[in-house]
Design a protein around this nucleic acid. Sequence first.
DNA 1: TTGCTCCTCACGTCACGTGAGGTGGC
DNA 2: TTGCTCCTCACGTCACGTGAGGTGGC
Lengths: 285, 285
Amino acid sequence: MDAMTAYLSIGDFSRATHMSIKMLRHYHQIGLLEPADVDPHTGYRRYTADQIPTAQVIRRFRGLDMPLDEIQAVLATSDVQTRSERIAAHLSRLEAELGRTQHAVASLRDLLAAPSSDPIGAIELRSVPAVAAAAISQTVDAEECAMWLQGALGEIYASLTAQGLAANGHPGGIFDDDLYTDYRGRVTVFVPCGTTVHPTGRITALEVPAVELAVITHSGSPTEIDRAYGALATYVARHALAVRGPIRENYLVGQRETPDTCQWRTEIGWPIFQTGTVPREQANP
Amino acid sequence: MDAMTAYLSIGDFSRATHMSIKMLRHYHQIGLLEPADVDPHTGYRRYTADQIPTAQVIRRFRGLDMPLDEIQAVLATSDVQTRSERIAAHLSRLEAELGRTQHAVASLRDLLAAPSSDPIGAIELRSVPAVAAAAISQTVDAEECAMWLQGALGEIYASLTAQGLAANGHPGGIFDDDLYTDYRGRVTVFVPCGTTVHPTGRITALEVPAVELAVITHSGSPTEIDRAYGALATYVARHALAVRGPIRENYLVGQRETPDTCQWRTEIGWPIFQTGTVPREQANP
DNA sequence: TTGCTCCTCACGTCACGTGAGGTGGC
DNA sequence: TTGCTCCTCACGTCACGTGAGGTGGC
């Protein structure tokens, strides 16, 4: 018997590859996995045994939540080098996400085990003067914001070193409201420096404006900063201090000081009314 | 100033909780997180600072991909005991999935590193006689099939022991086509035993029918059994042997023998034409 | 001939995102 | 008064699943 005539019906192909018929039809429709032959009269799909390995690769990738268009891109890449790179990139992303999820699970376990072990510090009202800085601004997605910030900060420090300039305080970030309300907005990261920086790459010289802020300090990993945000927002709301304006963050201890995120310390600054001489207050949530 | 009047607009609440406005409106619509007040004239949503912790819990759970209705169920549970159990259950599911994904990543890395290290065995055509067995049958989803099978098998062995009966061969499974084509179908798991079993629980006495099968053996974890299925389907297609009927599996080495899934050995049987005296053949994919 | 497989729409699901078009509040 | 915030539809996205209603093949 001729091996070429050994077509598999969609049902047989489903059994061979462990993909549902609905999936196979879907993959046909979007052109990801086209049957070797389609009967022009009945519309019956016919697959060959040769297509099984391809189907299995697709199934494996889907099992790892790779989007269909990415799978398609990988399969369309004939260049072995590029192909391997794309796959490796996806696997790295996956492993990174695995780490984050593991961390989140542990963190939630902690939260549930000791519900009120809040190491959330006091809230301080602060008048921040204007300061000259080297800065990078860009519109970014909320998800990639943390990563983007690290990269931009690295670029700024590298340029300061190249220009023989010294940082003049902790690095900071300025976050447009859109970043929170639409999950996409303008972010500025800056490093104060006495001398005006010479613009190179994405870097610009920026006069960071003066503001009145309610400030809280978050100790620990950025993944758990939400609690400090909540405490700060509660305080500002209860005291009716709220005013429009971007949120600030200052990185007292961060990537540059230690890779151990548990030791990081971040100040969050929420814009408030100019209250003149404000007494230092304790948060009372 | 009165703390009770300290409402937050949806924008402020978004900044306080790191949830987008779209999310907050969505959660309002489905009743997961209702604003403390809605202005009857303008429709403006007003939140209180008290709602921030609840919102944060929701955000944490969503970060772990918990479905919204499950979150709702957890929050609606006033009984602390039940609530903790539900959360713990979700975390356990998550950790199990983490393990599976890690395994899948590693497996795919292997596959890419050594593309043709196929330890896939020979294919044998076999006449299987009918056999008396203790069995459990049920319609299950493809995803939960493996888990279900372990549980059912455990029940069967326990009952055999209780009735003083001995197993008379390896345990096996019978899988309706629907399980592959629709991801939901009838599955039967059985253990051959000489004496007729007394029906208890889900267990019935079953005469497992005789069949002609093409059989391949898969060595290793069930998560990688897809390759053996592919090889077997290819063989059956190329030799035009296919015939309707449920697929069989025999568990030569499984959970009962060793928890190390790498050492498991599973036979897969694909129904074929009754060919009378068949010569033993080698697969030639 | 019966029952099974396979076909094509059309619509549903889940958790939102993306505008359009309009109004309210400082 | 201007510009910003907020509102409600209505529709889109992603990867399919769920029928309805109908035809083909052994």
